[in-house]
């Protein structure tokens, strides 16, 4: 049985990344970052390949990949909404934002991504934009002083663009 990776991905990319970091096991984290940038997540096959290439036990690579919250082993949505729940944002009402966005996207329980993999909603602790609390980052753009209404409007915009 074989698994297909997204068609844009070429196996060669991993080799390129590995070469870029001299196949140095100490560079595991930057390598995983580069791999994740390429594939949007860390597919198991690729991690195994990385482990083999760096001469590391696969369990160790898995351990590193699951330690850092930036890494994900399941595909993330196309649009990533990161909500700050740092102190400043929290006291300025980030919880209400989260609720509003999750409700609009119909996310329940521990679910982070919509089933169509269009959206992933995460919380982070402090984006360093505390002066603008509460802050939300949508696809790498920071939005400050967001209200639940504004947050939902931003999401709507994306939904409409996708439709």
């Amino acid at each position: 049985m074989e698994k297909e990776l997204s068609s844009a991905t070429q196996f060669g990319k991993v080799c390129e990344i590995l070469d870029r970091y001299d196949r140095d096991p100490a560079k595991l984290i930057p390598i995983l970052q580069a791999v994740q940038e390429e594939y949007r997540y860390l597919p198991e096959e690729i991690l195994t390949l990385v482990a083999t290439s760096l001469n590391l036990p696969p369990a160790k690579v898995y351990g590193v990949a699951t330690f850092y919250s930036h890494f994900t082993l399941t595909p993330k949505g196309k649009h990533i909404i990161r909500l700050c729940d740092g102190t400043a944002c929290h006291v300025k009402g980030s919880t209400a934002l989260l609720d509003a966005i999750r409700k609009r996207l119909g996310l329940t329980g521990k679910q982070q991504s919509t089933p169509d993999l269009l959206f992933t909603v995460e919380t982070v602790s402090c984006l360093g934009a505390c002066g603008l609390a509460p802050a939300v980052v949508i696809d790498d753009k920071v939005h400050g002083q967001v209200t639940p209404e504004k947050a939902v409007a931003l999401v709507e915009e994306l939904i409409n663009a996708e439709a």
Partner: peptide, 9 residues
């Protein structure tokens, strides 16, 4: 490693 094949291209 018991594993599946990975499609390359």
């Amino acid at each position: 490693i018991q594993d599946e094949d990975v499609l390359v291209s």
